[in-house]
Design a protein around this nucleic acid. Structure first.
Lengths: 209, 209, 209, 209
DNA sequence: TATGAATGAGACTTCATTCAT
DNA sequence: GATGAATGAAGTCTCATTCAT
């Protein structure tokens, strides 16, 4: 931890430092097995200092998730793009961006792990995730597919598609990497294959080429 | 817990009863937040009794996973089937069975959650899972696809496919249900769509029939 | 603490041992300033042991009061005595017994101190004390005085007497001894003077003689 | 806290403001359960400021008691009055004034509670209270009674009276109100009854008039 | 085998106090 | 003088584990 700056600057930076450290420690051991002291040690302060900024371990955890989990997906952007081009292009762009936001982004990726591990204990987390992320993403996919069907760009059968099917590989990839970091999937390539896969199904003549 | 049988029989059954109870409790709260007493209470014995059968909480957890996580997937079965029919049929059967084993089976489904939550703390679990489940499954998929390519049943491009892409939706489905049990996916239908999806990509003329 | 007896016997005696120790320590320092460890040390066990028997420090304190505060005053006894003799004799007997129960009894005496010190924090204590002790005692005094007036044994003016005035010296004595144990009042004599005092006021001809 | 006056004036007033706030907070929760921050908050300053004026929490508490506990009873006044009138009148005046000083005065009343609660921990308090209040009061009562006996105004038996008996109802009243504020005694009337009571005993012919 | 009282290490949290600004 | 960030000691409570019975 940088010991530079005036006291005022240090103070300003403290909350974020703590959230960062909390993120690392919670990621490593999970909520219950991480002690506030672990986090304090990582920041280089004492336990008491943590409580100057956060009222409880629970509050620290939730603040950490709120602060670091910033899903950078803006549904309206993709939907508006629909009127300027092919649905498949919008969908492709959306999936690539979703990949960046869900899999590549270290925070979001890890937070999806917290969700699996702690959602039972942190009902709020589940609710926030659903409302701020899961539902909008699914609605967007659904809308794009429907639009593609209406314009005749996609097969009729596509209309019955569960939108979660188009998302699930990303979630699966995420989880696989959490379960076993050594199990290296060529992730970039994985998404492109995933997209290609989708095109074969959705587009009227198999692959778009 | 069935209260039937002689005392001797019940004693015989004790270890399994304990593992069952451990499963329920660990599922509910996670490893760290579950106390040995929770488990003892559920079985109807005292904490001390747990230690008659298991040397430690860790050992109990690991035993529970080993005992209850019995992936009922036999790779050799599907591989041998390849010589008696179409690759797509083998693959279809395999995926359906994998769905049963991974998603429908309560134990395996929950254990995949444990893996996400605790793999960092239980390195052995990760290793076992990889060796006993992940790698064989991926190898089987890979083999089936390769066979389909060789016999000309599948497109040439299929050879480059990452086999994990074919599995990932199941993993994603599993996890989604853990994150949010209220997020109801029509799971049976989900798998069939998933299979159909794959056929469009793999088979030479879109969906075969 | 006696380290004798079988384990079973020791276990049986534990709760009372702990309550005793709690009484001594709480008396010495007050609720907030007494740590559970002080109490455990006095019993000769570790902190954890206390929590085997009591769910919290608060519960321990309340249990201690409930267990040790047994006001041995039975109102009905004095009231029934009224029909067999002079009101002044009943009153005298009552006050002497009240003195024994309030001032001489070490537990009740100390508990009145807890009430002064902690009633704000332990509302239940206040309620119990009022219902189980204060109100019955005052009602009894009131009844005896009224009876004496009706039979003509006491002056008419006595009817307007606040019964608390007859009790208050005992409460005052109690408190004085708490404030300053070195301030030695000749307590036995104090009560007899107090009774004499009352007779002068109540009885028609000054002192009963 | 009045927010008037120049800054300099307010600074001047700080110590007293703090003592006032300390009084309120300590009254509410007792010494141990009151945190310095509670007090600071009430004054509208930060914890650190408290330590500008007081060296420790203990010192603050003791200063508060010293500052606010100003028994407004001047023994010599009553003793000198003896030579100008009847002993019973002096005693009556004394008891009424004592009532004002002990029971009606909010500070003294509350401080007597602190004494009960904390005298064990604050030996100094006990000593001060004894020397500055208890002993002088008792000595005064004693002197008045003796004087009344000598002049023949009081019965001979009065000489053996424990002076504390004449004071104890006030102490008892005080404490009763602390134990249970809902237990409403008609306090003004209580004292007058108490005085009447005393006259019956002390004066040669029951109540004098 | 089974019990459950007891332990002791460690968790979260509070708070009087200090000190650089 | 005033601040408030930081500390560190201590307090309440939990729990995996042991062991005499």
């Amino acid at each position: 931890m940088a010991l530079t700056g005036t006291r005022a600057e240090r103070k300003q930076a403290r909350p974020r430092e703590i959230l960062q450290a909390a993120f690392e420690e919670f990621s490593l051991r999970g909520y219950a097995a991480t002690s506030v002291e672990h986090i304090a040690d990582r920041v280089g302060v004492t336990k008491g200092t943590i409580y100057v900024y956060f009222s409880s371990k629970e509050n620290l955890f939730e603040s950490m998730v709120s602060e670091l989990a910033q899903p950078s997906i803006d549904s309206s952007f993709y939907l508006s793009a629909l009127y300027r081009g092919a649905a498949i292009d919008t969908l492709t762009a959306f999936l690539r961006d979703l990949y960046k936001a869900m899999v590549q982004d270290r925070y979001m990726s890890e937070i999806s792990r917290f969700l699996v591990a702690e959602a039972n204990s942190f009902g709020d987390l589940r609710r926030k995730y659903r409302e701020a992320f899961a539902l909008p993403v699914l609605a967007t996919v659904q809308a794009i597919v429907e639009h593609g069907c209406e314009t005749g760009e996609f097969r009729g059968e596509a209309a019955d598609l569960d939108p979660f099917l188009l998302i699930s590989p990303l979630l699966g990839l995420n989880v696989a990497r959490h379960i076993d970091p050594e199990f290296k999937v060529a992730t970039e390539q994985f998404v492109e294959q995933h997209i290609l896969f989708i095109r074969y199904f959705l587009e009227k003549r198999g692959t778009g080429r």
